[in-house]
Design a protein around this nucleic acid. Structure first.
Length: 277
DNA sequence: AAACCTTGCAACCGCATTATT
DNA sequence: GAATAATGCGGTTGCAAGGTT
């Protein structure tokens, strides 16, 4: 089925927003709200913009509770741990960082945090420096109860060491079983009906479905490029993940089944562990 | 001083999902 | 239930600003 464009690209303004446009949009939304219809909003607000563009501008820039820049170490750790756990689900990750948008978190990861992780690896041969906070974090009892995370039987995620038949040595891997499918592009993914093993050495997105797809990720191959030299057993997803990132992930998603549910349905769980926020 | 390179980030694009008719 | 419209998301691009040669 074809799809009509959301607006006539030839007749609407594109590119950077002017301060006047920002003010127009801001004042309109503050007076009337978005009214549940972004497509109609530009006309009502007197803006010669695509509704989609207005929505993006509001959500990523004009919203009053937006924070820009100045990421804290804690935020770094949260992004890092959640990225390691659920991959590039930026909206979910951003939902755990008050005031941050998915676009902002994504940009921050791509431009800074990824390099920070690489630098940590280059300097120490490990990501432990990134994983270990300068000051201890106050984790909730739920977060500390990692045993409940690793022992649930369905909709679960865990990190483990397992033997690689191809390479004849142990690798750290992300295992996911009986979990809901990713909602986007799910036609590209085989249904997860049983224990699924993903080779982190190959690239390590939790959602990768093939070796070719794994190779697309430029971060993890670089990060794990040293193989066992850089990441002997338990150093990367084993050491860092089990000790810190998984704990952090568990804090934000104490019920891992809920996390997978959120990943699958885009329902953002509220009221989970807030001790890091 | 000019040219080139790198970085950061706003904005766009295409697709999947959800809601509505 | 099908068709269509609207929304949300993740990947990518374009460009300005700053840095380097």
């Amino acid at each position: 089925m074809g799809r009509a464009p959301c607006c006539d690209k030839a007749s609407v303004k594109r590119g950077p927003w002017s301060p006047e446009e920002d003010e127009q949009l801001r004042s309109y939304v503050q007076r009337h709200g978005i009214g549940g219809n972004w497509i109609a909003l530009p006309q009502k607000a007197g803006l010669n913009r695509c509704g989609k563009s207005c929505r993006l501008r509001w959500l990523n820039y004009l919203r009053p509770d937006i924070k820009h820049g100045g990421y804290t170490e804690q935020e770094d750790q949260i992004i890092w741990s959640l990225y390691s756990s659920i991959g590039s689900r930026w909206s979910i990750i951003a939902s755990k960082l008050p005031g941050r948008t998915d676009n902002d978190v994504k940009n921050y990861w791509n431009t800074k945090l990824k390099k920070k992780a690489m630098a940590a690896v280059a300097a120490t041969g490990s990501v432990a420096a990134l994983a270990a906070p300068a000051t201890p974090l106050a984790l909730s009892p739920a977060a500390s109860a990692s045993s409940s995370v690793t022992s649930s039987s369905s909709g679960d995620v865990r990190f483990a060491t397992y033997p690689s038949q191809q390479q004849q040595h142990h690798q750290q891997g992300l295992m996911r079983f009986a979990a809901p499918q990713r909602t986007t592009k799910q036609t590209e993914l085989a249904p997860v009906t049983e224990l699924t093993q993903l080779d982190v050495t190959g690239g390590g997105g939790a959602w990768a479905s093939s070796a070719a797809e794994l190779e697309d990720d430029v971060f993890l191959p670089g990060l794990v490029g040293g193989g066992e030299q850089l990441f002997p057993y338990g150093d990367f997803f084993g050491g860092m993940m089990q000790d810190r990132a998984l704990e952090l992930s568990a804090c934000y998603f104490p019920n891992m089944a809920e996390m997978w549910g959120a990943a699958a349905s885009d329902v953002k769980p509220q009221g989970l562990c807030n001790t890091l926020t």
